[in-house]
Write a protein that binds this DNA or RNA. Structure first.
Lengths: 338, 338
DNA sequence: CCTGGCACTCTGCGAGGGGGAGTGCCAAAC
DNA sequence: GTTTGGCACTCCCCCTCGCAGAGTGCCAGG
C-alpha cells in the first residue's frame, strides 16, 4: 500500500509535468511543492512509485513522467474537479443562449468547449432513439415520390426520400400522415417500431406497398448505424501536443475523422457521470496517447447524448473535467428550453 | 518575353519539386527531363526565371523552388487538367450513389475528395438563395410556439423556432400554411421576400403579429450570414505538408475551423469554371502557404454551391483539378436525381 | 547562344567534447 | 525503520568542428 506522502509526490509529479511538459526531478519537486522532506527521500518514493508502475523515466538519469496508470490514480483519488469561475459561467450561458437551431447549439457548444479547454471538442447530436417524436411529415414530391421528415423534441430534423411502388393520392397521404402522427407523437423513438408495425394492414391493398415503404424508411432512420452524428472542433489545438508531435498528431486526426470510432468510444462511457479514459484505455490505437473526458447531457434528467474533449494524456484533468461538466449542464438547459 | 525552353524549364521545376519536395538543381533537371541542353544552359534559364520572380532559391547555392508566381504561370499556361481513369470514375459514382440524404451526400463527397486528392476537402451545402422552395411546413409546438421547416429542391432542410406574440388557432395555421406554400413553392428563395411581404395584411388583426413573426423568421433564414454551411474533411492529410510543418499547420487548421473565412474564400471564386488560388493570392493570412482549388456544382446548369480542396502550394495541380472537376460533376448528377 | 570548366558558397551530417541535471546507493543521523 | 547528505555515475543536450556534396555564377571558347 502506498503511503500518504507517496501519493502526495505522485500528485506533485503530475501537476508539474502537466505544467512544464518536461520530466520532473526530485530536486525541482521539493522546491516547488512544500513537501517537508529532502530530495533524497523523494527519490526513494519515486523509486517505489516507479516499481509499482505509476511513473517512468524516459531515459536513465532523467526525471520521471507519469504513466497511464499514474494518471488514472491521480484522476481517481488525487484530483478534485475544478469548478468554473462565475464570469466563465456567465460567458457560457450568453454564448449558448444565442443559438437559433439545433445545429447552431451543437456548433456553439463544440467551439465553446474547445475554447475553454484548449483541446479538441466532440459533441454528439441528441440521439434519435432516446428522444421523443414531435412530428412526422410526409410530402409528396412527385406522383411516386415522397419525402419523410422527422422532428424530435430535442430539435433534431431528419429527412429521407421514399420511392413508392405505386402512386398515392393526396387524400390517402393526408390520412396516412394523420394516423402516423396520432400514433407516434409524444412517444419515444424506441417505442416507435411497435406502434407502426401494423399500419400497412389498415390500408387498401393498392396503398399497402407504399405505406410499408414509409414505415420501413421510418424504421431504417432509427438504426444505430446511421442515426448517430457528431461534430468536432478545436483541432488546431492538436498543435499543443508538443514539438515532437508530427508522428503523434497524424493518427489522432485520422481517428477524429472516423466518426464511427468516436461514437463507439463515447458509447463505452458510462451514461451518467463523467468518464475519463486515459491513453491505452482507449481501444482505438490512434488515440493511445490521448485522454478522452466525456459526460452525458440531456434536456431532462436523462442523457440524450454525450460530449467531451480529446487531449494529450498530459492534460489538466481537474480543469478539463470542470469545463466539460459545466458545458454539459448548460447545454441541457438550452435544450430543455427549446 | 520568356522563350519556349524557359517555360519548359519552369514546368520541369514545378513537376520535380512537387514530386520530391526538395529544391531542384540544374543537373538533376537535365537528367530527368530530356531537355536537349546542358546544365549550364539550364542555369542561365534559371537565372532569368529567378530574375522575373518565377522561382527562388532558399539559400545561396541551393536548388530552385517555384514561387507563387511560378505556380500561377504553370497553372495558367503549362498544365493540362488530368482526367480521371474510368475505374476511378466508376468508384466515384458508386460511392456517391449510396447516399441517403443531403447530409450524407455532402459527407460522402468530402470524404471522397479528400481521399482522391490526399488533401483537405471542403464542400459547401447548396445555397438556400439559389435553390427553389419545395415545401414550407408550420408546426404548432405549444399554444404560442411554432416551428418553421423549410425544404429545398436540393434536399436541404432548415428549421427555426418562432415565439408568437399571440396564440394562433389550428384553422388559421392551416390557412397560413396553405397560402404560404401556394405563394412560394417552386419559386427561387431569392424571390421569396417579395412574395410574402404583404401576407400579414390579409389576416385578421389578431393574427397579424404572429404572421409577421413567421414571415420575419423566414426571411432571416435566408440572410447570407447564417444560411451558408460547409463540411470539411481530410484534415489528417495536413500532415503531408512536410516535416517542417508544425508552424505551417497551425494557422491552416485555425483557418479551416473558421467557416466564415472559407465561405468568403469560396465566394470570391468565379461562379462557373474552376478557380485556383495560389499562396498569397488567398486573402487570409493563415492560408498563405496553401492553394485552394474550387469549382461550382449544381443539379442543373447553374451552380448552387462550391466545393474544392485546400493543399500546400506544392501540390499536383493537374491531378487535383481533375479530381475536383470530376467530383463536382457527379455530385451535380446525384443532386439532380433527388 | 550554348557549353565545359572552375572556384566559391552553403547545407547537412557525424564525430567529439564539455556542462548539467538527475539518479542510485551507501553510510550516518534521527 | 525512516530520513538525510554525500558521491560517483550515466545519459542527454548543445555546441563546435570538419568534411563531403550539391549547386551556383561566371568566364572563356566553340
Amino acid at each position: 500500500m502506498l503511503g500518504e506522502r507517496r501519493l502526495e509526490v505522485l500528485r506533485a509529479i503530475v501537476q508539474d509535468y502537466v505544467g512544464t511538459h518536461e520530466p520532473v526531478g526530485s530536486k525541482a519537486l521539493t522546491e516547488r511543492h512544500h513537501l517537508r522532506v529532502s530530495p533524497a527521500t523523494v527519490r526513494n518514493d519515486m523509486a517505489a512509485l516507479e516499481e509499482d508502475g505509476y511513473i517512468a523515466q524516459p531515459h536513465t538519469s532523467a526525471g520521471r513522467i507519469p504513466t497511464d496508470k499514474g494518471y488514472r490514480l491521480f484522476v481517481d483519488k488525487l484530483a478534485d474537479v475544478k469548478p468554473l469561475s462565475p464570469p466563465e459561467r456567465r460567458a457560457i450561458q450568453n454564448f449558448l443562449g444565442g443559438a437559433v437551431d439545433l445545429d447552431d447549439v451543437v456548433g456553439r457548444t463544440v467551439r465553446l468547449l474547445a475554447q475553454l479547454t484548449q483541446q479538441v471538442a466532440v459533441v454528439q447530436y441528441p440521439s434519435l432513439t432516446r428522444s421523443t417524436v414531435r412530428h412526422v411529415e410526409l410530402l409528396s414530391l412527385a406522383p411516386a415520390r415522397l419525402m419523410l421528415v422527422l422532428i424530435t423534441d430535442t430539435g433534431r430534423v431528419e429527412q429521407r426520400l421514399i420511392d413508392c411502388p405505386t402512386p398515392i393520392g393526396e387524400a390517402t397521404l393526408a390520412d396516412l400522415r394523420a394516423r402516423l402522427n396520432s400514433k407516434v407523437v409524444g412517444e419515444r423513438f424506441n417505442d416507435v417500431p411497435g406502434l407502426v408495425q401494423d399500419l400497412p394492414e389498415s390500408f387498401d391493398a393498392d396503398d399497402r406497398g407504399t405505406v410499408s415503404a414509409v414505415v420501413a424508411t421510418l424504421l431504417e432512420t432509427l438504426v444505430e448505424e446511421t442515426e448517430e452524428r457528431l461534430m468536432i472542433g478545436g483541432t488546431a489545438n492538436l498543435t499543443r501536443f508538443g514539438p515532437d508531435f508530427p508522428l503523434t498528431i497524424r493518427p489522432v486526426l485520422e481517428a477524429l475523422e472516423e466518426h464511427v470510432v468516436l461514437l463507439k468510444l463515447l458509447g463505452e462511457a458510462t451514461d451518467s457521470g463523467m468518464t475519463v479514459r486515459i491513453g491505452h484505455e482507449n481501444a482505438h490505437e490512434g488515440l493511445s496517447s490521448t485522454s478522452v473526458v466525456s459526460v452525458g447531457y440531456g434536456s431532462g434528467d436523462e442523457a440524450v447524448a454525450k460530449l467531451g474533449v480529446v487531449g494529450p494524456t498530459r492534460m489538466d484533468y481537474p480543469g478539463t473535467m470542470g469545463a466539460v461538466r459545466a458545458v454539459a449542464r448548460y447545454v441541457g438547459q438550452i435544450l430543455a428550453e427549446s
